[in-house]
Design a protein around this nucleic acid. Sequence first.
DNA 1: CAGGCGTGGCTAAACGTTTTGAAAAGCATC
DNA 2: GATGCTTTTCAAAACGTTTAGCCACGCCTG
Lengths: 366, 366
Amino acid sequence: MSSSKRSKPQKPGKAASISDVARESGVSIFTVSAVINNKSHVGKNLRERVENAIQKLNYRPNLIARSLIKQKTQTIGMIVPDIVNPFFPMVVRGAEDAAQKHGYNLLLCNSDDSLAKEETAIELLLSKRVDGILLTKAAGEFSPSLRQMIEGVNIPFVLVMRTYPTLTKDAVVSDDYQGAYEAVCHLARSGRRRMGLISGPLKISNAKERWRGFRDALEHANLPFDPELVVEGDYRIESGFRAGHALLSHRPDGIYVANHLMTIGLLQAVEEMGLKCPEDFGLVSFDDYPWLGVFRPRLTTVELPKHQLGSEAAELLIQRIGGNQGKPVLKKLSPELRIRESCGFAQFVSGEHRRPGAPEPSTISL
Amino acid sequence: MSSSKRSKPQKPGKAASISDVARESGVSIFTVSAVINNKSHVGKNLRERVENAIQKLNYRPNLIARSLIKQKTQTIGMIVPDIVNPFFPMVVRGAEDAAQKHGYNLLLCNSDDSLAKEETAIELLLSKRVDGILLTKAAGEFSPSLRQMIEGVNIPFVLVMRTYPTLTKDAVVSDDYQGAYEAVCHLARSGRRRMGLISGPLKISNAKERWRGFRDALEHANLPFDPELVVEGDYRIESGFRAGHALLSHRPDGIYVANHLMTIGLLQAVEEMGLKCPEDFGLVSFDDYPWLGVFRPRLTTVELPKHQLGSEAAELLIQRIGGNQGKPVLKKLSPELRIRESCGFAQFVSGEHRRPGAPEPSTISL
DNA sequence: CAGGCGTGGCTAAACGTTTTGAAAAGCATC
DNA sequence: GATGCTTTTCAAAACGTTTAGCCACGCCTG
């Protein structure tokens, strides 16, 4: 109750500050702070007084001020190409869950796979002093100045889904090579011979990996690699549609598509051309989604552990933030081949309809 | 170059601060600050010296410190039930685009439609002193203490997609009543008589609105409202599946489903029961998605302007942050009926396949 | 030459926390 | 009563900005 030296009264519209609480309960700021962070060395008596004042004033510590002094914001920045691409929500969710668990929040940015937007986003995140950044890098190099910035300031980065040759940072990716390899091997096992690929942009690491997996699987199966049967798309629906037209005109009997959106485009092209899957060609796609249950034919896919990808990346980042030094780590998560109808491997396909949530009809964990 | 009184040297691992720049360029902190915020009153000479120093030190203003003094973080919090629900990514994207445009960032939280998680999230966002909050409210009341907190601290909220009776805040929603009304009218026009509804949780405003639209459309069409033909789901796939089984056993000849995920579940039930759409019943769903192009039959849907929903909400919020006082606003955005095959309104369905990106076969803007 | 005024720059206070170093208080021991 | 040891409390410095208030200077005006 006694008046401190320079305590100003709390303004009406403003949230209470720690000094308001101190004044209200007649103790010093230090004691209030101690109570908040419940340090042991506060007397029962005072602690109660302070807690009452906190209740009464509806006090809530200002984390901005805390961030300033602690030099930690408990926030991590996450940059994805586009949250609307159905691949990313689950990754973001995984990251958010892990972040949450450790008391971090997620500042989300979309780069649209544009280097310029990516740079702007990173600069902003650095200015906001996030504790670390999860980055699904757009294709292309950082500008030298940004690069210098990144090296200079000492906050950890973890690359998600895409590695980058000249960027020696931690990365959490799916084993895309393996996924593609198994997918194509499976097509070969089901009797396909003229194998086509709708690839992602080869400047992006995972597209390149899937391309390599495709190629090596052909070699392994003693099948020819025909450049005519490889079309590069950009991971979007429209490009899958165009690539589908281009590819199907060469009559492959097996197609592997490197992501879900392009598969949607492809299937539209397929219908337009009056072709049938799996009769005319076998199909394996990447990424699995709940709504695939409604697609006909049921798609054989290589499913990536999307949630895990996000959560492990966040966990790793948080470890780094916590001071865990050491060489950059490359973590590869195993994809999982889910065999359904579109590959034409009939014996694997159970006739009964699968209830939602029930186990997959056939699953090969790679 | 001259030594200031109490300037400490920059530590190696740390990012440069404004005082480092001041020392480097031999001016006061004030001048550096003026240059950064390019105030007019700085001489050309000094300005250049300062800019060089900024370059050299790779200086980047600390927005945390700025936030502390300006009492603005240039950050808005956004709480959605689950970013993995395909409805929300586009809404979030809309919000992010608008936020970005005005120099704000998005702090994203998932509530899983749980009141507890929602409260935790709001408290955290308030502590982090976001400038405003975009909220898709979970069903249920705020706890009194949180409510008091929200009223006390003076930051604006904008409700997204869902209003809430006892919460007099701004809201941006879709006109769900109208959307449902038109959907059901359309089913009636195409000759359906026994109309069924798979509804969302009626505690959620938009589910209730869609329910009302359904009921009134029946009345308008002189059709009976049969409680047996109304099943309440929870907006998830699984519930659509169960609701589908329950509903179809009563043989409706027209079904309106209140969101996309439940439609997926329904379609699985439909197949399992060996029924055909649109032969056995007409179907209209809510929300449109790119992958619907692959669904058969093509779904007639009521599309919501998802991106706009997010961006208008963010714009409104930012206006409020900017000090725009006034009564709470309720903004309703018009949905759009996209007629395809599933409603069985054959004459509207063009035979040719629609290319991606091409205009919809038939669109009725409500 | 006094007074007024714009220009360009500075000092210092403020924002709301954490934390260091020290002091006061309580208590047992010598 | 001095000494030492804990326990409890405090005042003040820091974090990196913005900004109000002030001052020195030069120029014009009367």
